[in-house]
Structure formats: structure tokens, C-alpha cells
Design a protein around this nucleic acid. Structure first.
Lengths: 141, 141
DNA sequence: GACATTCGTCTACAAGCGTAGTAATTTTTC
DNA sequence: GAAAAATTACTACGCTTGTAGACGAATGTC
């Protein structure tokens, strides 16, 4: 079990593009560009996106199908993998590795709808009945 | 209410140094260096730290007292401000702004001690009885 | 007070990222 | 099939970050 090659860190813009790709399965550079420009205030040029996408392919975070014209790009990492890795880093960097501290802060500092509160409670319930079986290594604070 | 000049984004190493400074109030470059090298695998040189600290002063994230020899460095932002800003960005970037999603994930994917679970539950309780009074702007999802 | 050590400033440089222009290639459209 | 449009490849450049050397200024030590 060797934590299969953690997802590399990317630049903010690269994450944006990944987001777009997670949403629209395989997409062309043009589609990604449009997806991006539709929302973002700062419009980018086609070639900018191409450059980014190409680099991301080199980093093996995307996959490209060159047989098809225009090329189709597609993520090679799932949103979940990415989230897992980033959340870990984040908790380590800003909360000394104490995930609860972050969780508490989320509850206290962000506007949670009642619905959201219920979801979290349910999740906590589930955790309590399941835990003990799945403790990982590392100081569970 | 103009969100008082959000804390700028820093590089990973810069965050590390901030962490050290949050812990040991005003400290000299040497102290920061030692604090860093004591833990980190990759040892750094004195001048590297000085460069970083100086840049952080320029970014106004640190303050330096030059009257005292060796100079004393000190954060100008609190851990809490920093965390707030970073958590927001993070939630936006990886969870489409849905803080609950991150919270749920924390509960489900990290090893929480029973103590931690209690803390979270307490926090949720507090939230439920307090909420309504303190809703912030922004889509409370 | 001469020598050693520590500190601070300045300069440098490679890698990564955002940004895009230009040139070459491919596809589309008359 | 020639001209126009879209796509892809290659190159470049400025900024930031991590990394540190050189060198002069301040301080500490006999």
C-alpha cells in the first residue's frame, strides 16, 4: 500500500481547469476555454489554455486523446483523490494536522444551512458507529 | 465593512515560517532558522531565512524591529485571520464553496479521536442554538 | 584593538506559473 | 482546391519562490 503517487500540486489556474474538466468529462481546449471565460472576470486566450493543458498532460494529471481532432482532454485523477491530498496538506499547514480544528472552524465560521447541519450530524453518527475499525496511523487528535 | 485587506497568499515555506513565528512571539532570524531546521528534513541556510523574512516584511505580513540587534520579527496577521482567508479560498477552489462538503469529508476521511468527535458535536450544538443571529453574506449552502 | 563570529544587504539564479505571440498544420468552407 | 478559420507546437518573457553566495557592518572575545 504505497499511497499511489500523490497528486502533484498545481497552480491556482490549473486547478480551475481541472474543475472544469471534472464537470465536462472529455473536453477540447476550446470547450475548457469557454467554460473558463464564461465565469472568470479575466478572459484568457486560446493558446494560454492550450499551454496549461499541455503542461498538465506532462504532469500526468490529464490525459489527451490525440487521435481525435480537436484533441480531447480528460482528468487522470479524480476529484476525490485531489481533495484528499489537498485536505491533508491543508490541515497540516494551517491546523498542525488537527482535522477537528478545521472542522470546528467550518462549523463556527461559515454559514451552514439547517440542511447542511443535518448532513454533518448524520456523518458524525456514521463515523461513531463505524470507527475503531478504520483508524489510520498518525496522532488522531 | 471592507474585509480589511485579506492576507496575501504566500509560498509553502513562507507559511512554515509564519507558523514558527506564531508560536514564538518575536524571534530573530536565527531562532526561526533553528525552529525550522529542528523539524524539517531539508536544512536551510541562514541567509535563506533572512531573504524570506525580509520579503515577508515587504508583503506586510511580518513586522521587524530594527532597533534591536539582532532584528526581531513578528507576525502582523493572526493565525485566525490567515486561517479564515485560506479556508475560504480552499473551500471555493476544491469544494465549490460548500463548506459542509469539506466538513463531511473531514469526518469521514480523517482519524478523529472520540474526544475530537465530542468537540465537533458540541460545536454543532452551539451553532444550532446561535444560528439565525449570525448569518453572513454569501450563499449559505 | 585585532581577530573571529554573527548579522544584514544585495545580487543571482533556476524552476514553476500565467500569459501569449508566431509559426506550422489541419480542417472547413466556397 | 484555394482561401479562411481553427488547432497545435514552439518559443518567450515577466513574476514569484526557494535557495544561497559575497561582502561589508556590527558585535563579541582575548
Amino acid at each position: 500500500m504505497t499511497a499511489k503517487a500523490a497528486v502533484p500540486e498545481l497552480g491556482p489556474l490549473e486547478y480551475q481547469l481541472l474543475r472544469i474538466l471534472w464537470k465536462s468529462a472529455p473536453a477540447t481546449a476550446r470547450e475548457v476555454l469557454e467554460g473558463y471565460n464564461r465565469k472568470a472576470p479575466k478572459k484568457l486566450k486560446y493558446t494560454t489554455i492550450m499551454t496549461l493543458l499541455t503542461r498538465m498532460v506532462e504532469k500526468r494529471v490529464l490525459e489527451v486523446d490525440r487521435r481525435r481532432q480537436p484533441f480531447q482532454f480528460e482528468p487522470r485523477v479524480t476529484r476525490e483523490q485531489m481533495q484528499r491530498d489537498r485536505v491533508n496538506e491543508f490541515v497540516n499547514l494551517f491546523f498542525e494536522g488537527r482535522a477537528v480544528d478545521l472542522a470546528v472552524r467550518l462549523v463556527e465560521e461559515t454559514p451552514l444551512s439547517p440542511e447542511a447541519v443535518r448532513r454533518l450530524e448524520a456523518s458524525l453518527e456514521r463515523h461513531k458507529t463505524t470507527s475503531g475499525t478504520r483508524q489510520k496511523r498518525g496522532a488522531g487528535q
